[in-house]
Design a protein around this nucleic acid. Structure first.
Ligand SMILES: [Mg+2]
Length: 185
DNA sequence: GCGACAG
DNA sequence: ATCTTGTCGC
């Protein structure tokens, strides 16, 4: 099973969504949402401190825990090698993979037919293009998973640019936000 | 000091 | 991330 996590915002609240999909069929097995006050502003490199609380709250509500979580953020591809995906994996003590829609650091470099993100002589992640001629997603190690395995499972879970786990979590968070918004009017 | 900068 | 209409590509 593969899980996905993402957070939406409304007012001063964070709305997190966690989903669990079947690795083979990509069918949604379970999902959960949780909301909590945002206590930290967004500062590049410190995203995890802002999104970890709501994310953990949503994950805690899942009855079945997936074998690995895809996170909508960087993992090892971070200045301190500790992006949100790493932070979440350490907090849960479970495997995680970072799948970001844009780059934080690292120089995209062509190596053996793939585009690695290099920083200070180290391969910290990989730019993965699901569909030719489309913007890539930046995959990096989160916790307990190698970059090679991370890229492999990301491909297995992809139908469009953003892999299903993260996409489903993002959509659920957005829909939940909309409902809360209308109820507030 | 200047530019870059996940979500 | 959020605001926000039409428009482009698959
Ligand atoms: Mg997000």
């Amino acid at each position: 099973m593969v899980g996905g996590v993402d957070v939406a915002y409304l007012g001063g609240f964070g709305i997190a969504a966690a989903v669990v999909l079947d690795y083979s069929t990509l069918e949604i097995l379970e999902s959960a949402v949780a909301t909590c006050p945002v206590k930290v502003p967004y500062i590049p490199t410190l995203l995890s401190f802002r999104e970890l609380p709501p994310a953990l709250a949503a994950i805690r509500r899942l009855k079945v825990q997936p074998d690995v979580f895809f996170v909508d953020a960087q993992g090892w591809a971070h200045p301190y090698r500790c992006g949100f995906a790493c932070h979440l994996g350490l907090a849960l003590c479970k495997p995680t993979v970072g799948v970001a829609k844009s780059r934080l650091i690292g120089e995209p470099t062509e190596v053996d037919g793939r585009t690695l993100l290099l920083d200070k002589g180290e391969a910290i992640g990989e730019a993965v293009t699901i569909k030719e001629h489309s913007k890539p997603v930046y995959v990096s190690v989160g916790n307990m998973v190698s970059l090679e395995t991370a890229v492999e499972i990301v491909h297995q879970c992809s139908r469009s640019r953003v892999p299903e786990p993260t996409l489903q979590a993002h959509n659920l968070a957005a829909r939940t936000k909309s409902k809360l918004a209308e109820g507030h009017l």
